[in-house]
Simulated scan of single mutants.
Amino acid sequence: MYTPVPAPHTESRPLPPYRALFAVDAKDFTGLSAVQHGPVSQLIPELVDQALERAGLHELRDSKRFPASTGDGVVFGFDPAMLPFVLWPFLGVLDDVLGSYNQQFVGPRIRLRASVHVGPLPDAGRPDDGNGTARNDTHRLLDSRPVKAILAAASEQVTHLAAVMSHRVYEDVVLGGYTGLHPDRCVEVPATVDGKNFSQRAWLYVPSPSGNLVQAGVRAREEPADRADAAPTEPGETSADRYGAGYSGNTQRVGEGAAVMGDVGRDVVYTGKSTSYQGTNQHWGSGDNVTGDKRTGESGDRR
């Protein structure tokens, strides 16, 4: 006998319990040799459990809800009360565990994308537990363009994990002050997935930034670049204010020029006025973020 499919908006029903969700998948998994797929699929949940152990989250490790393998990763639900500890310290510990593994073992590097979300999901000990919009959105966040782009652009020697969290998680847990992860370490991104009708506000956290973040002049404020030609700053003015780039966590401030995410082809000529960012976090869009005129054409494009 078929299970009847309920029609929405026809009657009121109890709301399923809220469950937090964590998912990871491996970068370039499909590029591995067929003989490596099985061992890597088995290795990823082992590394995640090792990180949970090291982060002191033994209870979470042993109480996962509706865990599942995705082939190139894992996904599981858990008590939302544990969200602050998953964001901090677990994500950073997972990055360290991956880095240690990649240094010690010969073979494919294991670099992961991670997503964290929360929402109502059925959890009653049935085969269909964990299925719902929140689960779908968790996987869409995992496949979204920003988190893929940042991991592809980052150094494989330094950056082993790129994590994206939903705005709901960011607002409730990070802005709420319940986690050790400071808001300045998060960057707002438009989470979109190629070929999918999905677009959400989300937040990126990279425990060990590298690659184009460093090449763009992003640096720790406590370690400013030495400037032999530096002129004295005005009272209350920092070197970041004067020279247009400062970094605190994943916060970037751009003075004069353009902040560019992803690959850029052809020439880029910037002719607008200087840009400035006054908020806590930089908001990345897709493409190049500029202030001033942006015109595209043939030779001599001005962007």
Rank of each mutant, 00 (worst) to 15 (best):
Y2V: 05
P4A: 14
P4E: 15
P8N: 09
P8G: 09
S12C: 06
R13E: 14
P14I: 07
L15A: 11
Y18N: 08
R19Q: 14
R19A: 13
A20S: 12
A20R: 01
L21F: 12
L21Q: 12
F22L: 14
F22M: 11
A23P: 00
V24M: 08
A26G: 04
K27H: 13
K27Q: 15
T30I: 06
L32S: 09
S33P: 00
H37G: 04
I44C: 08
E46Q: 15
E46P: 00
L47E: 08
A51F: 08
L52S: 04
L57G: 04
H58V: 11
E59R: 12
S63I: 01
K64D: 08
S69R: 04
D72Y: 11
G73S: 07
V74L: 05
M82D: 10
P84S: 03
P84L: 05
V86G: 01
L87I: 06
L87Y: 03
L87V: 09
W88F: 13
P89I: 15
F90W: 08
F90Y: 11
F90I: 07
G92P: 01
D95Q: 14
L98R: 01
Y101T: 02
Q103R: 13
Q103L: 10
G107W: 07
I110T: 05
I110D: 05
I110H: 02
A114R: 00
V116P: 00
P122W: 07
A124C: 05
G125A: 09
P127K: 01
P127E: 15
N131M: 13
G132R: 03
N136I: 14
D137R: 12
R140S: 13
R140P: 01
L141R: 01
R145Q: 12
V147A: 06
V147M: 03
A149L: 13
A153I: 05
A153Y: 03
T159G: 05
T159F: 06
V164M: 06
S166G: 12
E171F: 09
G177W: 06
H182K: 11
T192N: 03
V193W: 10
D194T: 07
S199T: 03
Q200A: 15
W203K: 00
L204A: 02
Y205I: 02
V206E: 02
S208G: 01
S210C: 08
G211A: 10
L213M: 14
Q215G: 02
A216P: 01
R219M: 10
A220S: 14
P224Y: 05
D226S: 04
R227D: 11
A230Q: 06
A231M: 10
P232R: 06
P232L: 09
P232T: 11
P235C: 05
G236W: 05
T238F: 04
S239E: 13
S239N: 11
A240N: 04
A245S: 13
G246L: 14
S248R: 15
Q252L: 14
Q252C: 09
R253A: 10
V254N: 02
G255P: 01
V260D: 03
V260Q: 05
V260F: 11
V264S: 09
G265M: 09
R266M: 09
V268W: 05
T271A: 15
S274L: 08
T275F: 15
S276N: 03
Y277C: 04
T280D: 13
N281T: 10
N281G: 03
W284V: 12
G285H: 06
G285E: 10
G285S: 11
D288L: 15
N289Q: 12
V290Q: 04
R295A: 15
E298N: 10
E298H: 07
S299W: 03
G300R: 07
D301P: 03
